[in-house]
Write a protein that binds this DNA or RNA. Sequence first.
RNA 1: AGGGGUGUGGUGUAAUUGGUAACACGACGGAUUCUGAUUCCGUUAUUCAGGGUUCGAGUCCCUGCACCCCUGCCA
Length: 589
Amino acid sequence: MSDNAPTDRPKHFIRQMIDDHIAQGRWGSAGDRTVLTTRFPPEPNGFLHIGHAKSICLNFGLAEEYGGRCFLRFDDTNPSKEEQRYVDAIIRDIKWLGFNWPGAGAGDEGVLFASDYFGFMHDCAVDLIRKGKAYVDEQDAKAIREGRGSTSEPGTNSPYRDRPAAESLELFARMRSGEYPDGAKVLRAKIDMAHPNFNMRDPVMYRIANAAHHRTGDDWHIYPMYDWAHGLEDSLEGVTNSLCTLEFEDHRPLYDWFIGAVNEGRSEAEKIHHAQQTEFARLNFTYTNMSKRRLLELVEKGIVQDWDDPRMITISGFRRRGYTPESIRSLCEEVGVTKFNSLIDFGKLENACRDHLNRVAPRRMAVLRPLKVTIESWPEGETDQLDAVNNPEDEAAGTRKVPFTRTIYIERDDFMEDAPKKFFRLKPGGEVRLRAAYWITCKDVIKNDDGEVVELICTHDPETRGGGNPPPDAEGKVRKVKGTLHWVSAEHAIDAKVHLFDRLYNAERPGKKTGDHLDDVNPDSLDVVDAKLEPSLAEATPDEPAWAYGIRRFQFERLGYFCEDQSSAPEARLFNRTVTLKDSWAKKG
RNA sequence: AGGGGUGUGGUGUAAUUGGUAACACGACGGAUUCUGAUUCCGUUAUUCAGGGUUCGAGUCCCUGCACCCCUGCCA
C-alpha cells in the first residue's frame, strides 16, 4: 500500500500540517512518517453515508500514505441511540471501500470501542473532581440550560459549583452505582460560566442513563459526554491527528482543556498523550441531505425500503445501486480537503461512477421498453450466433455470442414515425444498424386499434453481417448508416424487472425553503419496467473486475450501467440502474 | 448581540508562501466512432467589495459585505 515516502499528490492543509509536525519531530523522532496515527470514530446510530466516505478516505488514506495507522473506533457513549446492527453495517461498509485498520480480519477483529475505555474515563473524572476541576450538579436540565446564559449574557454559577470535592466524589460514586434516576444529577467541569464560548461554560462530563448498552450491558449507569470522552479515546490510542468536521471547531478549546486538566500536576511520566484536533469541511451534495437523523426519517416513514435502498446516499445504498468503491474513493480525492463549506454537484459523483464503470463494466444488450420487430427477410426458425465485443475499452474482455432470429425487440424510443431530421434511429423507410448484427430497413408499421405502434416489419441486408459496413459498390462508394440500435432476440430473451431510479429529492437543497426535507421528496424516484435481456445475462459468468463483493455490474449498451440486485434470482431477475450513460441527444430534445 | 470559521470561473481544488491565475469536472463548438457513449481538439475567471503598502498582491495591512457553525444531560 504505502512506500512510506512523500507522494506528489497535492498538499492540502492537513497534509501540510502533518508534514510540519513530522519534520519538527512533534510525535517522535523527526522525519519518521510512520508515527502518523489517525482514527475514524463513527457513532453506531445509523448507516455510513457518502459524507462519511470523505472522512474515511482522509483518515485511512493518510495512514496508508504515510505508513502510519488508522483505527476504526466506535464512539459508543450514548446507549439510547446505538445498536449492534449499525456496528456490523459500518464495519462492512468500510471494508467494502477497501480500507483496513490494524488487526483487521474477516469479522470485527481489531475494531476499537470507546466503551472499552469507560473505566479509564471514570478514573480520570475522579481525578478532576479531586483537583477541584469538576463537580456534581443537581440542577435539572432546564436550570442548567438557563444558567448557561446567552450570547449577550454571561452564565451564572450553579449553587452546587463550590461544593467540597469530597461531597462530589461521594455523589459521583452513587451516580455510578445506579442510585439515581435519569437526569437527577450530572458531573460538570468547572471552567468559566462567563466564557464567550458556550462549550466552556461548565460543560457536562457525565449524565445518568439507566439504559442497557449494546456492549457493556448494565455495567454502567453513567455515560461520558462526547467532549469528555473523545480526547481520552484519542489519547489512549496514541492518535496523533484527530480529524473532525468544522462544527467541532468550537469544541477544540474544550478538547485541549480536558487533556490539560488531566495532566495538571502530573509528572511527565504520568501525563497522558495529547492529540492535535484539526477540522475540515463536510462533504455536501446537491439534491441530497447528509443528516443521519433525516436519513432515519426516510427509512422510518417508508419513503425508502431501508438504509441500503439504492436511492439512499448511504455507502450501503451506493453499493446496492451498483457504484464501485473505486468511484467513491476517486471522488473523495477529487473534491479535496479544505475548510470551505462547498456544495458539490451530484452529477460529479455520477460522473466518477461512469468513469470507472466505462473502463471495467462488460457490455450487454437489454431492451427496457420492448417494441416487437419482425425481420420478414429472415427465415423462420433460423438462428444466427453473432460475436459481440464485451468491452471496447478492454480487449482482454473478449467477445460473446448473441443469438439473432426473425423476431427481435428494440427500444420503443428508437423508433419514430414522424422523426425530426436529426433523428438517426429507425423511421419508416429508414435503415439502421443492429449492434453486432445486421443492418435493417423499416418496411411497415403495424398499429393497434388505439393507433399505437405495436410492431415493425423490416428486412435485413445479409451483406452487413456482424454490423460492419458492407463492401464498396461498383463506383467505390461506401454505404454508411448513422444509427446503431441495441436489440434482443424475442425467442431467447430473458425477462427481468429493472428499477430505474431518479433522485430522491426535487430540490437542490432539500428542506431549504420550508424547513422540512420531506416537502421536497420526489414521488417518482422509482420506476419499475419489464425488460428483455440478452440471454448471456443469465449465465454464470467468471469474475470480472467490476464485480467486487459479488455484485454483477454491466453496461447495457446505449442505456447506462446496471447491476443485478441482491434479491435477484433466476426465476425473478431484478436489475438496478446505477446511472445512465451521458445522452447529448436527450438533452437537446 | 458575543464567540468560532470561510470567501479564487458553472462546480470543486491549486498557485514554488509577494513574481504576473494552473488542474479536474461540467457546459458549449468541432473531429473520430458498430454505443447520440468513450476518445481527441478547441472555447470557457483579472481571485467577495473598496482602499492601502510594493517595481510587483489571490497571497501583506485597513475598512466593509456575504455565507456557515455555536446557548443537548446528542455526536
